[in-house]
């Protein structure tokens, strides 16, 4: 950490990013607006992952389970019980947070490599459970939530979540909320103690901090963000399937955060956006998008371990949060 960041510049930057994204809604062609809606929702997933991986220094290989907990927590009640959108969204976040509390309580007893494998194993259990209860989840094939169920009703207001512009704006609201909360956390004493735990856990313990409680709070917060992203994904795009709980969706947020820059507030957005367009671009002349993912992972970890924003912060803008 290089001293206290100048607040004005930081707030101006984040406000400008959100404003810019708002303007894009009216400028972007239809196809790209669809891509951006998805990217904004998934960037919230990546930001949730970043809280744990970037700031707290805990590499989880199982975050797909939190995303999927939100996805199913919101999707299943809508599909089977005809819940309306708002309570379903909250149910999604709550399921993710509760799951994160339980998993964090167990997994945080381990460190390093064991933590990665334990989270991987728990996520695999979650994935297998979604396959096991295939009567309700329809496994890999998944559920498609009917369009008429995806309406947000408040008083006389009736908003169809299937409308592209509204969908983009709601995705932007979710993204901005997570971004602002992240920024707030990062600048708070709590956020600074997370970074301190990442840098030197023993020392923090010696200074009298409760390391376990702080880490657990980070896991729950991270799980809740990822679940919010999953819940929004289910409600906005109307599809809920086991694929989102598979290992691949635990790896993707790691890739996005690494690419954009771990422990930067805007890195996850940049990483998600870049990766989406790299895959989009390459799939034009070769079908092998996993090859791109694999190569990107290796090249990043070899030559760019700090990611895009991390490198910019190191060279030119040490004030970036």
């Amino acid at each position: 950490m290089t001293g206290r960041a100048p607040s004005g510049r930081v707030f101006a930057l984040h406000a400008a990013v959100i404003l810019g994204l708002l303007i894009l809604n009216f400028v972007l062609p239809e196809y790209h607006r669809g891509v951006f809606s998805r990217v904004l929702v998934l960037a919230a997933f990546a930001m949730g992952y970043n809280i744990l991986f970037g700031y707290t220094g805990l590499l989880s290989l199982g975050h797909a389970m939190f995303f999927a907990a939100g996805l199913y927590g919101a999707g299943l009640p809508v599909y089977h019980l005809d819940w309306s959108v708002a309570p379903a969204f909250i149910a999604g976040i709550v399921s993710g947070a509760v799951l994160a509390l339980a998993i964090g309580f167990l997994a945080l007893r381990t460190t390093g490599v064991a933590f990665m494998i334990v989270t991987l194993m728990f996520a695999q259990v979650f994935y297998l459970i979604t396959l096991f209860f295939t009567t309700y989840t329809r496994g890999e094939e998944g559920l498609v939530i009917r369009q008429d169920l995806r309406h947000l009703r408040m008083g006389d207001l009736d908003l169809a979540l299937t409308d592209p512009s509204l969908r983009y704006l709601i995705a932007l609201v979710l993204f901005s909320a997570v971004l602002i909360v992240t920024l707030f956390i990062v600048r708070s004493p709590f956020g600074r103690s997370l970074v301190a735990i990442r840098e030197n856990e023993e020392r923090m313990r010696m200074l009298g901090y409760n390391v376990f409680t702080n880490k657990l709070a980070a896991v729950v917060l991270s799980g809740a963000f990822c679940a919010a992203s999953g819940a929004a994904y289910a409600l906005l795009f109307g599809y809920v399937g086991s694929g989102f709980a598979s290992i691949q969706y635990s790896i993707l947020p790691l890739l996005w955060v690494l690419l954009g820059g771990a422990a930067t507030t805007l890195g996850p957005l940049i990483g998600t956006l870049f990766m989406f367009y790299i895959v989009d671009f390459t799939s034009g002349f070769m079908p092998a998008y996993l090859l791109v993912v694999g190569a990107a992972l290796i090249l990043l970890i070899l030559f760019f371990p700090k990611g895009i924003l991390g490198s910019i912060r190191e060279r030119w803008a040490p004030w970036l949060p």
């Binding site: 790896i251 993912v293 694999g294 190569a295 970890i301």
Partner: peptide
């Protein structure tokens, strides 16, 4: 991370 890349 690198061996995950290798896997893909």
């Amino acid at each position: 991370v690198a061996t995950i890349g290798l896997l893909y």
